[in-house]
Structure formats: C-alpha cells, structure tokens
Design a binder for these strands. Structure first.
Ligand code: FES
Ligand code: FES
Lengths: 161, 161
DNA sequence: AGATACCGGACAGATTTAGTCCTGTATCGA
DNA sequence: TCGATACAGGACTAAATCTGTCCGGTATCT
C-alpha cells in the first residue's frame, strides 16, 4: 500500500535524466541502459508520458525524447497520474461515486482530506526537485510540536482527483 | 498506486466505530453488519489490530473489542502499518537497502523525502480526526502561493520507515 | 532505400490483495 | 458443568494488479 509502482519509478528516473540534458534528446535504449531498466517497459512508460504531453518524441535516427516543458513545471503528481492512472485513496469516492454506505459511513469525508493532503505533497514536488539534493542535508525537527492536522489541511490548495 | 487497501479501510471504519462507544465493546459481527463488511475479513483485521496493541479483545458472551487507548492517540499511520505492513514508496530503500543503482541513481534521495512527507501526513491523522467533519466545511486556498516543497519537508518530524 | 526509433496493442507470468474455511480456545451465563 | 458466544489464527482459493515481453506498424533521418 502507498507504494509507487515501478513504472512510475522508471518514469521519474527517466524524466530526471532528461531534465539533466534540457536541450538534447535521449532514446529509450540510452536511458534504459544507463539505469539498467528493462527496455520495452521503459518504452511504454515514455510513450504514455508523451501522450500526456509531458514528453515530446522525436522519431527517426538520432531521435528520442525530450521534456515538453521546463522541469520545474512538471509535478510528480502529474507524472504518477499519467503512468498509473488516477490516484485513489479509498474505494469510496471513485467510479459510481459511492459505496452502499456513503450515508452512514463516517470515515469517508475525513479520509478524503487525508487523500488531498497527500496529493498536495505530490503536487508540490516537481521533476526539478528530483535533481537537487536540497540545501540542508537532513530535514530537522524545526517544528518540535506536531502541526495539528486541520491546519495542514486548511493550507491546501484544491487538487482534483 | 497510492491506494489504501480495503483491509486498512475496514480497519479505520471499525476503529472509528469503536471510538464512538469508548466504554463499551463491539463484536466483529456487530461492526461488520453495521457497515456491510465481510465478517471473516474484518475479523482478521481486528485480530491484527489486537496483536499490535491498538485494540483489546474481550472473549466470551457479550465480548468484542474496544480501543486500547484514546482515539486521539492512535494515528492512521500506525493503523495502516499494522494492517498492511510497512509503507514503501520506492523499491530502492527497502530490504537489502539498495538496488543495483543506488549510487548513480539521482532519484532515490529526493523520493525518500516525498515519502516522509506522506508518512507525516498519515502520522498526524488520528482516529479522532476521523470522527469530526472539521469546523470549516471546506478547506480553502488560505495559501494561494504554493508552499515550496523544501519548506514542507523541513517542517517534518522524523518518522521511521 | 535502409537503419533507427517511436507507437501501441495483445499477452503471459508473478505478485498482491480480497475473501473464505475450518479447527481451536477462552469466557460468560444459566 | 454445560453450552452458546466470540476471539485466534493458519491454510487456502480467487480475483485483481503489476511487471515484463513480443510483434507488426509508422515516421524520420542519412
Ligand atoms: S465505506 Fe464507502 S463511503 Fe465509507
Ligand atoms: S533506482 Fe534504485 S536507488 Fe534509484
């Protein structure tokens, strides 16, 4: 649970790689070789990223992929959604909209909030961020007192799905 | 991906239910009936919650389960871990500690931070929070400017795994 | 042309999750 | 003491996902 799929992993790795060579293009094979990833699988991941306008593909000899926009404009959430489909926390606010319970179920609404909080984290994280190991080597307990959850929640910006 | 398992879902529902009757106990069957959950499955979930000291079981006629401590002292993270096992975001910082890449892989460290941010959200969320629909009906854009990720990260309190 | 690369669906195998079943043990109440 | 109630927990099956492969097709550069 709460596990990134390998595909998403591969996608992030590839994107991060492409971000490091902003002008040039890299082929599936190149990237796969560099990071020892299964070629055909990575290929499909890159295809999907192209479909979703995150990458641009260049066919032909010396072709390959390059980012469709700046690395700072591509969020991890977008990538994950492109590859793995919509992110779903509970089964209750999906397809048909509600399980048999949705009325007397007390858990539904609150869980949706956790859901959004998580999406928000993913949303703030860009491919850019994947590159730099961050100034402060290790995050530290700057907030010894745990921030109450509702505060965290209230600072969220709406993220659909 | 990033999906709560049904078991975890069931567990949270059950806990929330038990939180609403702090003194009394409720049997597996009672809870399952109330929320239309598969009895044997819920039973196993509750068993695990008992093993991990989140619940206390009472055998015999009129037996059942009750919370082992106050609802505000039980975090969603704890529950999820009890039921689904350790939460893992990437495959790279698990078992053996590293994939073949861990050296030239640039994604590893940054991803670990996203991971922690998510765990942190889950960690702050208690069974208590599941109960109340929160004062402000809908979270709003109190922070129109997205908080930079590293700020979010720096405010984290360490959470293992 | 011919070589290189992307495109995209179909498909097989492995892993995870969901859900069932059955035997055993503890406790309460009559 | 007997019997009903309820938890304990392992073994097992089935369904759903995820991982990874294969292949025929198309676009592009040299
Ligand atoms: S169990 Fe489905 S809405 Fe809560
Ligand atoms: S791919 Fe394993 S450490 Fe990044």
């Amino acid at each position: 649970m709460l596990k990134l799929t390998k595909k998403a992993d591969y996608g992030l790795i590839a994107l991060r790689h492409l971000a490091s060579i902003p002008t040039a293009t890299a082929s599936t094979k190149e990237i796969a070789d560099t990071y020892h990833l299964p070629v055909p699988l990575l290929a499909k991941v890159l295809q999907r990223l192209t479909q979703t306008k995150i990458l641009i593909s260049v066919a032909g000899t010396n072709g390959g992929y390059r980012l469709a926009r700046d690395a700072s404009k591509i969020s991890a959430l977008e990538v994950v959604r492109a590859i793995d489909g919509p992110v779903i926390l509970t089964h209750c606010f999906t397809d048909h909209g509600s399980c048999d319970q949705s009325d007397n179920c007390t858990v539904r609404e609150p869980l949706r909030r956790v859901h959004e909080a998580i999406l928000d984290v993913l949303n703030r994280f860009t491919i850019d961020d994947l590159a730099e190991p961050v100034a402060q080597p290790r995050a530290s307990k700057l907030t010894p007192l745990p921030t109450p959850l509702h505060q965290v929640i209230n600072s969220l910006q709406p993220v659909s799905n």
